[in-house]
């Protein structure tokens, strides 16, 4: 059953890559990249359960989840504001430096 899940996840990753390459706008590519991130971390967790020590693979999965989310939001901010720092965001409240 685990091998079947891993094969289905691989197929899903290939299909999402098609949308990432073909998508005519940048928003579709961001969405496809986020979905690819999620499927990758699931694939790593399932392969970890197929091996001897699943603990290491689950740690990698957890890091991938967090970094994937941060990457998606960072790219989105870069598309919206021109940069992902705080000074590029016109909504941040600046503190007056005395």
């Amino acid at each position: 059953m685990l091998e079947l899940t891993a094969a289905a996840l691989l197929l899903g990753m290939a299909l999402v890559l098609i949308r990432a390459i073909r998508g005519p706008s940048v928003f579709e590519r961001i969405l496809a990249a986020n979905s690819f991130n999620t499927k990758t971390l699931l694939l790593i967790a399932v392969i970890g359960f197929l091996s001897e020590s699943p603990t290491d693979y689950l740690d990698i999965s957890l890091m991938y989840a967090i970094i994937g989310f941060i990457g998606t939001v960072a790219v989105l901010r870069c598309v919206e504001y021109g940069g992902f720092l705080d000074r590029d965001d016109p909504d941040t409240e600046r503190e007056e430096v005395q």
């Binding site: 059953m1 079947l4 197929l11 299909l15 979905s35």
Partner: peptide, 20 residues
């Protein structure tokens, strides 16, 4: 566990076909 894994993979595939 097999039922849960199978339905999870099924939903993933359906969602990917929807994206396409």
């Amino acid at each position: 566990s097999g039922i849960l894994l199978f339905s999870g993979a099924f939903f993933m595939l359906v969602g990917t076909i929807g994206i396409l």
